[in-house]
Simulated scan of single mutants.
Amino acid sequence: MKAVTIRRVYDGLSPDDGVRVLVDRVWPRGLTKEAVYLDEWIKHIAPSTPLRRWYGHQPERFVEFRRRYLIELQDVQSQVTIERLRKLASTTPITLPDCQQGHRTQSGSSPHRPSARQWPADRR
């Protein structure tokens, strides 16, 4: 399995990025589509708008947020997309650009990124 990397979208390209897949329902502020250099933008496997609003960047809600997000990922369309990304990650590096400028988890990423990074390993 190749690497799945999480990088800030605002930091630009890296030679090690491989395939760049934005997993977010909103476009990164202040950037044009040309400036982001994406291979794909997948909105439907990002946390839902109601879930993001409930979370409200409150770190004490992270464990419950993650639990609810993993439940959201159980629908057929999400599972098909995750399986496609898992297969892609077995042959090439994948970078998940992180659009969040504000709150970060303890690992330094957006709240749903740790879950997304684990797709290749724990979603079977």
Rank of each mutant, 00 (worst) to 15 (best):
R117I: 12
I6P: 00
T91K: 14
E72G: 07
T91L: 07
L22V: 00
I82K: 04
E64H: 06
F62H: 13
P111D: 10
R84I: 00
R104D: 05
T92M: 08
E40Q: 13
H112K: 11
A116T: 11
P47T: 12
T49E: 14
W119M: 08
L22E: 02
G18L: 05
C99S: 06
T5Y: 10
G12A: 08
V76P: 14
L73H: 02
S48K: 08
G30D: 06
P114V: 03
S109E: 14
D122I: 06
G12L: 12
G12E: 12
T92L: 09
E60F: 11
K43L: 03
I94R: 00
P111I: 13
E72M: 10
C99G: 10
V80N: 14
P97E: 04
P114R: 04
I6R: 00
H57L: 01
V36R: 05
T92S: 09
W119C: 05
G56K: 15
A3W: 07
V21P: 00
V36P: 01
W27S: 02
P15K: 08
W41E: 04
Q106E: 15
R84N: 08
P114I: 03
F65M: 11
T95V: 08
T91M: 09
A121K: 12
T105S: 07
H57V: 01
E34M: 04
P15T: 12
L31G: 00
L31Y: 01
K87N: 15
R104S: 09
R61Y: 09
S110M: 05
W41Q: 05
D122P: 01
V9A: 03
C99V: 05
L85P: 02
V21K: 01
L96Y: 03
R84G: 02
T5D: 05
R52V: 12
L73I: 06
G102E: 13
P28Y: 03
